Simulated scan of single mutants.
Amino acid sequence: MPNQNQCPHGGDHSESCDACDFAPASVWSDMPADFMTSLAERKTVRKLKRGNYLFHQGDPCDAVFRLLSGVLLLRKGDHDGNSLVVRMVRPGSTLGYRALVRGEVHSVSAHCATEVVVCHIPARAARWAFEQNRALERDFVANLVRDIDQIEDQALNMLTLCVRDRVLVLLYQMAEHFGRDEGEALCIDTPVSKSDMAAMLGIARESMSRCIRLIEEQGLLRFHHDGVVAPCRKRFQAAVDAILGEVAPKSEDDRPASNG
């Protein structure tokens, strides 16, 4: 029978918290060794396939999660059953803490945009950890505040850009995980719909449609049903660099492509 704590992700992540890629930068990094050993006995590492859900909006919060690899989309549903993506979560992020401390259900659903690996810390184990080490609890609160500040800063930065530039920057960010090179072109298998992108950027669907037409007329991107293509990757890169104010040339290793 396989060890439930053994990470199934090709050996990239160990069951040992000390060996975790994110441990040095996490709130757990300064915890005593015996404390971390006890915690490791309580947590598990889970692997979920693309398309699955880590949790659903309205589910009781029964765990805190650390995203070790992959990308999650946080979806918010309304009373009519419509669901829109509100945020894209990358490795190193912690999920579930706010709902845990408030004693509330999850306010969003966590949808796997790719295959993901998470460190699963049951709610009882998380509460035990906070009771055993109040400094850890304070660090979690401080991290939560920093996350909120970062989200607000990113939202503010996006709002200072015109609609066209917001769309280009978002697609550039998606290319990190969902892009692949095809000759001189860059293909982005976008994990969200155009409506989702509009919601993430805080723009109306009509504005999104007009923006897409403009970008296509400029020859920067071509939008398809299941993705986006930049016919000239270097031109797309240059356009994003101009938006972000980056003047230093990018090396081949810095280009936005993956999965290829």
Rank of each mutant, 00 (worst) to 15 (best):
P2D: 00
N3E: 09
N3H: 08
Q4Y: 03
N5M: 03
C7P: 00
P8Y: 04
G10Q: 12
D12Y: 05
S14Y: 03
S16F: 08
C17A: 11
D18S: 13
A19E: 15
F22I: 07
F22H: 13
P24N: 10
A25T: 05
A25S: 09
V27M: 09
P32G: 09
L39T: 02
T44Q: 07
T44R: 14
V45M: 08
R46S: 04
K47W: 10
F55C: 12
G58I: 02
P60I: 07
C61E: 10
D62W: 02
V64R: 04
L67G: 04
S69F: 14
L72H: 11
L73V: 14
L73H: 09
L73E: 08
D78S: 06
H79M: 02
D80V: 06
D80Y: 08
N82C: 00
N82G: 01
N82P: 01
S83C: 01
S83D: 09
V86R: 12
V86I: 15
R87L: 06
R87G: 05
R87S: 13
M88N: 08
R90M: 04
T94G: 05
T94Q: 07
T94D: 01
A99K: 02
L100Q: 10
V101P: 04
R102N: 15
R102L: 14
V108Y: 12
V108L: 14
V108H: 12
S109C: 12
S109P: 10
C112T: 14
C112L: 12
T114F: 09
V117Q: 13
C119G: 07
H120S: 05
H120W: 15
I121V: 15
P122E: 06
A125P: 03
W128N: 02
F130R: 03
E131N: 10
E131G: 06
N133M: 06
A135Q: 11
L136R: 03
E137S: 15
E137K: 07
E137Q: 12
R138W: 12
V141S: 01
V145R: 08
V145G: 04
R146M: 11
D147W: 08
I148P: 02
Q154L: 09
T160W: 11
L161E: 03
L161S: 01
D165V: 08
V169R: 00
L171C: 08
Q173G: 07
M174W: 05
A175C: 07
D181Y: 01
E182V: 12
E182W: 01
E184N: 10
L186E: 00
P191I: 15
V192F: 06
K194W: 10
D196A: 11
M197I: 03
M200E: 11
L201Y: 05
S207K: 15
S207D: 13
M208Y: 06
M208E: 06
S209E: 13
S209A: 13
S209F: 07
S209K: 11
C211H: 05
L214A: 08
I215S: 03
Q218T: 02
Q218W: 07
R222L: 02
R222V: 08
D226L: 09
D226W: 07
P231F: 05
P231K: 08
K234M: 14
R235T: 06
Q237Y: 00
Q237N: 11
A238H: 06
A239N: 03
D241W: 01
D241R: 02
E246P: 00
A248L: 10
A248Q: 09
P249I: 00
K250H: 13
N259K: 13
